[in-house]
């Protein structure tokens, strides 16, 4: 039997995110929410770096090759039935789009979504989804994937009110030069 939350496939957290330009994205540890898995795309070096750092920090990791079918069918489908644990990742938008649709059917939402766009010259710009749009933040280091992994793993799930991101299912974003770091958690 589905619950009401199974049916609520979208939601927008209402709390405002403080201005972030120049500040750390993860302002404070959230209430502990267990991280079931950190997902990375083995085809993408930045995503692999994200996964490696997450693993170093003790998080269980799983590689995909863009396709989330096996991850969902063999693992998350069951986990979402029995546990409130979160899932995080750094993937292409298309992978998140597919996973997000399945997550919403299980009453889970994307509670954190940051976009990392590689610009001409290899510079990566970052912005995090917030109610009303995106808010830019700085991380000029080439090690930004590791930094994102660290933030996400250490804080488990930034679902405290001030960090709760806009979780309306996004229209699929173009994949060109874009990666998304994300956390899916119980609604």
């Amino acid at each position: 039997m589905l619950t009401r939350r199974d049916m609520v496939k979208l939601g927008i957290a209402s709390a405002a995110i403080p201005a972030m330009a120049g500040k750390a994205v993860f302002a404070a540890p959230s209430a502990a929410v267990r991280l079931h898995k950190v997902v990375y795309d083995a085809r993408i070096p930045a995503s692999v770096a994200f996964g490696n750092r997450a693993q170093q920090l003790g998080a269980p990791v799983e590689a995909i090759n863009g396709d989330v079918t096996a991850l969902w069918f063999n693992d998350l489908h069951f986990m979402w039935r029995n546990s409130k644990a979160s899932v995080a990742g750094l993937t292409r938008p298309s992978s998140l789009f597919a996973l997000e649709q399945m997550a919403h059917l299980a009453g889970r939402r994307v509670v954190f979504r940051a976009e990392h766009r590689t610009q001409a010259g290899g510079i990566c710009t970052h912005r995090v989804a917030a109610p009303g749009g995106f808010v830019a933040f700085r991380d000029a280091s080439p090690y930004w994937p590791a930094h994102m992994a660290q933030s996400i793993v250490r804080h488990a799930a930034p679902v405290s009110d001030h960090m709760r991101a806009q979780s309306m299912i996004a229209a699929p974003a173009p994949d060109q030069n874009v990666l998304i770091s994300w956390i899916i958690a119980a609604a």
Partner: peptide, 12 residues
């Protein structure tokens, strides 16, 4: 076997 593989091909 149902699959979500086709979303991969939406990628660049």
């Amino acid at each position: 076997i149902p699959s979500l593989q086709n979303f991969v091909f939406g990628a660049r």
